[in-house]
Nucleic acid binder design. Structure first.
Length: 230
DNA sequence: GCCCAGGTGGGTA
DNA sequence: TACCCACATGGG
Protein backbone atom coordinates (compact mmCIF):
# COMPACT_ATOMS: atom_id res chain seq x y z
CA UNK A 1 0.00 0.00 0.00
CA UNK A 2 2.52 2.61 1.17
CA UNK A 3 4.72 3.44 -1.78
CA UNK A 4 2.32 2.16 -4.43
CA UNK A 5 2.45 5.52 -6.14
CA UNK A 6 6.21 5.98 -5.89
CA UNK A 7 6.98 4.46 -9.30
CA UNK A 8 4.59 6.94 -10.93
CA UNK A 9 6.02 9.78 -8.90
CA UNK A 10 9.54 8.90 -10.05
CA UNK A 11 8.50 8.46 -13.65
CA UNK A 12 6.69 11.80 -13.76
CA UNK A 13 9.58 13.52 -12.07
CA UNK A 14 12.04 12.13 -14.60
CA UNK A 15 9.80 13.31 -17.42
CA UNK A 16 8.87 16.78 -16.17
CA UNK A 17 11.70 17.54 -13.76
CA UNK A 18 11.30 19.19 -10.36
CA UNK A 19 8.33 21.57 -10.35
CA UNK A 20 9.47 23.79 -7.48
CA UNK A 21 6.01 24.65 -6.26
CA UNK A 22 4.38 26.86 -5.03
CA UNK A 23 5.10 29.53 -7.70
CA UNK A 24 5.54 32.43 -5.28
CA UNK A 25 8.32 34.52 -3.79
CA UNK A 26 7.46 34.10 -0.13
CA UNK A 27 5.01 32.62 2.33
CA UNK A 28 2.51 35.47 2.12
CA UNK A 29 2.38 35.20 -1.65
CA UNK A 30 1.59 31.51 -1.29
CA UNK A 31 -1.26 32.24 1.10
CA UNK A 32 -2.72 35.02 -1.03
CA UNK A 33 -2.23 32.90 -4.15
CA UNK A 34 -4.15 29.94 -2.71
CA UNK A 35 -7.16 32.19 -2.23
CA UNK A 36 -6.91 34.00 -5.54
CA UNK A 37 -6.57 30.79 -7.55
CA UNK A 38 -9.90 29.37 -6.38
CA UNK A 39 -11.67 28.21 -9.54
CA UNK A 40 -9.50 30.53 -11.60
CA UNK A 41 -6.73 30.13 -14.17
CA UNK A 42 -3.30 30.80 -12.66
CA UNK A 43 -2.42 33.44 -15.26
CA UNK A 44 -5.27 35.60 -13.96
CA UNK A 45 -3.87 35.19 -10.46
CA UNK A 46 -0.42 36.26 -11.62
CA UNK A 47 -1.88 39.45 -13.02
CA UNK A 48 -3.62 40.15 -9.71
CA UNK A 49 -0.45 39.47 -7.71
CA UNK A 50 1.43 41.81 -10.02
CA UNK A 51 -1.14 44.53 -9.44
CA UNK A 52 -0.73 44.12 -5.68
CA UNK A 53 3.03 44.22 -6.06
CA UNK A 54 2.99 47.37 -8.16
CA UNK A 55 0.76 49.04 -5.59
CA UNK A 56 3.20 47.97 -2.85
CA UNK A 57 0.40 46.09 -1.17
CA UNK A 58 1.69 42.51 -1.38
CA UNK A 59 2.74 42.44 2.25
CA UNK A 60 0.88 42.16 5.53
CA UNK A 61 1.15 45.90 6.30
CA UNK A 62 0.20 46.64 2.71
CA UNK A 63 -2.88 44.43 2.87
CA UNK A 64 -3.93 45.82 6.24
CA UNK A 65 -3.86 49.31 4.78
CA UNK A 66 -6.34 48.46 2.02
CA UNK A 67 -10.09 48.82 2.14
CA UNK A 68 -12.09 45.86 0.87
CA UNK A 69 -13.06 47.91 -2.17
CA UNK A 70 -9.50 48.88 -3.04
CA UNK A 71 -8.24 45.35 -2.49
CA UNK A 72 -11.03 44.09 -4.72
CA UNK A 73 -10.00 46.41 -7.52
CA UNK A 74 -6.37 45.29 -7.34
CA UNK A 75 -7.27 41.60 -7.52
CA UNK A 76 -10.04 42.05 -10.06
CA UNK A 77 -8.32 40.00 -12.73
CA UNK A 78 -8.53 36.88 -10.55
CA UNK A 79 -12.35 36.93 -10.66
CA UNK A 80 -14.76 36.52 -7.73
CA UNK A 81 -12.97 39.58 -6.41
CA UNK A 82 -15.55 40.61 -3.82
CA UNK A 83 -15.44 37.18 -2.18
CA UNK A 84 -11.70 36.87 -2.45
CA UNK A 85 -11.04 40.33 -1.04
CA UNK A 86 -13.20 39.44 1.95
CA UNK A 87 -11.42 36.12 2.37
CA UNK A 88 -7.95 37.70 2.25
CA UNK A 89 -8.97 40.36 4.74
CA UNK A 90 -10.53 37.78 7.03
CA UNK A 91 -7.39 35.71 6.96
CA UNK A 92 -5.17 38.72 7.74
CA UNK A 93 -7.45 39.72 10.63
CA UNK A 94 -7.35 36.18 12.00
CA UNK A 95 -3.57 36.11 11.64
CA UNK A 96 -3.27 39.39 13.51
CA UNK A 97 -5.70 38.34 16.22
CA UNK A 98 -4.59 34.76 16.79
CA UNK A 99 -0.97 34.63 15.66
CA UNK A 100 0.42 38.11 16.28
CA UNK A 101 0.35 38.76 12.55
CA UNK A 102 3.12 36.25 11.96
CA UNK A 103 2.93 33.53 9.35
CA UNK A 104 6.05 31.86 10.74
CA UNK A 105 4.21 31.30 14.02
CA UNK A 106 1.04 30.20 12.30
CA UNK A 107 2.75 27.43 10.36
CA UNK A 108 4.32 26.01 13.51
CA UNK A 109 0.94 24.88 14.82
CA UNK A 110 0.28 21.15 14.70
CA UNK A 111 -1.23 20.17 11.36
CA UNK A 112 -4.72 19.18 12.60
CA UNK A 113 -4.99 22.35 14.72
CA UNK A 114 -3.97 24.68 11.92
CA UNK A 115 -6.18 22.86 9.42
CA UNK A 116 -9.17 23.20 11.72
CA UNK A 117 -8.49 26.89 12.28
CA UNK A 118 -8.09 27.58 8.56
CA UNK A 119 -11.33 25.78 7.77
CA UNK A 120 -13.17 28.06 10.18
CA UNK A 121 -12.29 31.04 7.99
CA UNK A 122 -14.96 32.09 5.57
CA UNK A 123 -13.82 31.42 2.02
CA UNK A 124 -11.28 28.80 3.04
CA UNK A 125 -12.30 25.26 2.14
CA UNK A 126 -10.34 22.00 2.22
CA UNK A 127 -8.23 22.65 -0.87
CA UNK A 128 -7.22 26.14 0.17
CA UNK A 129 -6.49 25.01 3.74
CA UNK A 130 -4.37 22.10 2.54
CA UNK A 131 -2.53 24.27 0.01
CA UNK A 132 -1.60 26.67 2.81
CA UNK A 133 -0.57 23.77 5.05
CA UNK A 134 1.58 22.11 2.40
CA UNK A 135 2.97 24.96 0.35
CA UNK A 136 3.22 27.73 2.93
CA UNK A 137 3.86 25.59 5.98
CA UNK A 138 5.60 22.45 4.76
CA UNK A 139 3.03 20.22 6.46
CA UNK A 140 2.64 16.71 5.02
CA UNK A 141 -0.89 17.17 3.69
CA UNK A 142 -1.85 16.24 0.15
CA UNK A 143 -3.80 18.80 -1.86
CA UNK A 144 -6.75 17.41 -3.83
CA UNK A 145 -7.76 19.69 -6.66
CA UNK A 146 -9.49 19.45 -10.02
CA UNK A 147 -6.28 18.30 -11.71
CA UNK A 148 -5.76 15.58 -9.12
CA UNK A 149 -9.23 14.18 -9.72
CA UNK A 150 -9.00 14.53 -13.50
CA UNK A 151 -5.67 12.75 -13.81
CA UNK A 152 -6.60 9.97 -11.38
CA UNK A 153 -9.86 9.34 -13.23
CA UNK A 154 -8.20 9.32 -16.59
CA UNK A 155 -5.73 6.69 -15.47
CA UNK A 156 -8.14 4.55 -13.49
CA UNK A 157 -6.48 5.42 -10.19
CA UNK A 158 -7.97 6.62 -6.94
CA UNK A 159 -10.74 5.34 -4.69
CA UNK A 160 -13.81 3.90 -6.39
CA UNK A 161 -16.81 6.21 -6.31
CA UNK A 162 -18.94 5.12 -3.37
CA UNK A 163 -21.89 3.17 -4.80
CA UNK A 164 -24.67 3.85 -5.46
CA UNK A 165 -24.17 7.54 -4.86
CA UNK A 166 -22.57 10.06 -4.88
CA UNK A 167 -20.89 9.72 -8.27
CA UNK A 168 -17.50 10.75 -6.99
CA UNK A 169 -15.33 10.18 -3.97
CA UNK A 170 -15.18 12.85 -1.29
CA UNK A 171 -12.21 15.15 -0.84
CA UNK A 172 -11.06 13.22 2.22
CA UNK A 173 -11.42 9.87 0.45
CA UNK A 174 -9.20 10.95 -2.43
CA UNK A 175 -6.73 12.57 -0.07
CA UNK A 176 -6.48 9.47 2.12
CA UNK A 177 -6.13 7.23 -0.92
CA UNK A 178 -3.09 9.18 -2.13
CA UNK A 179 -1.53 9.84 1.26
CA UNK A 180 -1.66 6.16 2.18
CA UNK A 181 0.27 5.27 -0.99
CA UNK A 182 3.17 7.67 -0.64
CA UNK A 183 5.76 8.17 2.09
CA UNK A 184 4.34 10.75 4.47
CA UNK A 185 6.71 13.54 3.44
CA UNK A 186 5.75 17.10 2.56
CA UNK A 187 8.44 17.25 -0.13
CA UNK A 188 6.93 14.26 -1.95
CA UNK A 189 3.33 15.44 -1.55
CA UNK A 190 4.39 18.85 -2.81
CA UNK A 191 6.15 17.54 -5.87
CA UNK A 192 3.64 14.82 -6.73
CA UNK A 193 0.74 17.24 -6.68
CA UNK A 194 2.62 19.72 -8.86
CA UNK A 195 3.48 16.87 -11.24
CA UNK A 196 -0.16 15.82 -11.49
CA UNK A 197 -0.99 19.39 -12.48
CA UNK A 198 1.76 19.23 -15.10
CA UNK A 199 0.22 16.01 -16.43
CA UNK A 200 -3.23 17.56 -16.52
CA UNK A 201 -2.04 20.65 -18.34
CA UNK A 202 -0.17 18.58 -20.91
CA UNK A 203 -3.19 16.63 -22.12
CA UNK A 204 -3.92 17.41 -25.72
CA UNK A 205 -7.51 18.26 -24.95
CA UNK A 206 -9.47 17.73 -21.77
CA UNK A 207 -12.45 16.52 -23.72
CA UNK A 208 -10.56 13.87 -25.65
CA UNK A 209 -9.39 11.37 -23.08
CA UNK A 210 -8.38 8.83 -25.73
CA UNK A 211 -6.31 11.18 -27.84
CA UNK A 212 -3.50 8.96 -29.19
CA UNK A 213 -1.12 11.88 -29.39
CA UNK A 214 -1.05 12.34 -25.65
CA UNK A 215 2.65 12.03 -24.79
CA UNK A 216 1.89 10.92 -21.27
CA UNK A 217 0.18 7.66 -21.92
CA UNK A 218 3.26 5.64 -21.01
CA UNK A 219 3.80 7.65 -17.84
CA UNK A 220 0.76 6.51 -15.92
CA UNK A 221 -1.23 3.30 -16.05
CA UNK A 222 -4.48 2.97 -17.93
CA UNK A 223 -3.25 2.07 -21.39
CA UNK A 224 -5.20 -0.60 -23.22
CA UNK A 225 -8.41 0.26 -21.45
CA UNK A 226 -10.93 2.90 -22.36
CA UNK A 227 -10.04 6.09 -20.57
CA UNK A 228 -12.29 7.04 -17.75
CA UNK A 229 -14.61 9.96 -18.17
CA UNK A 230 -12.90 13.16 -17.16
C1' DG B 1 -20.75 33.71 -28.33
C1' DC B 2 -19.49 29.60 -25.55
C1' DC B 3 -16.73 26.93 -22.46
C1' DC B 4 -13.59 26.61 -18.96
C1' DA B 5 -10.20 27.56 -15.13
C1' DG B 6 -5.47 24.62 -9.26
C1' DG B 7 -13.32 26.43 -5.02
C1' DT B 8 -16.49 27.96 -1.53
C1' DG B 9 -20.80 28.80 0.76
C1' DG B 10 -25.69 29.11 1.02
C1' DG B 11 -30.21 27.24 -0.02
C1' DT B 12 -33.40 23.44 -0.68
C1' DA B 13 -35.53 18.74 -0.46
C1' DT C 1 -26.59 13.99 2.49
C1' DA C 2 -26.98 15.47 -2.41
C1' DC C 3 -27.75 18.56 -5.74
C1' DC C 4 -28.12 23.50 -7.47
C1' DC C 5 -26.60 28.03 -7.86
C1' DA C 6 -24.03 32.53 -7.31
C1' DC C 7 -19.72 34.38 -7.37
C1' DA C 8 -16.37 37.16 -12.08
C1' DT C 9 -12.44 37.69 -15.02
C1' DG C 10 -9.81 36.44 -19.12
C1' DG C 11 -8.18 33.21 -22.73
C1' DG C 12 -8.97 29.57 -26.34
Amino acid sequence: MVGDLLPYYRRLRRHFGPQGWWPARNRLEVVVGTILVQNTAWRNVEAALEQLRRAHRLSLPGLRALSAADLGQLIRSAGFWRQKARTVQGLVAWLDGQHAGRLDRMVRLPTPVLRRQLLQLRGVGPETADSILLYAGGHATFVVDAYTRRVLLRHHLGPPPPAPSPDRASYIQVQSWIESRLPRQAEIYNEFHALLVAVGKSYCHRREPDCPNCPLRPLLPGDGRPAARI
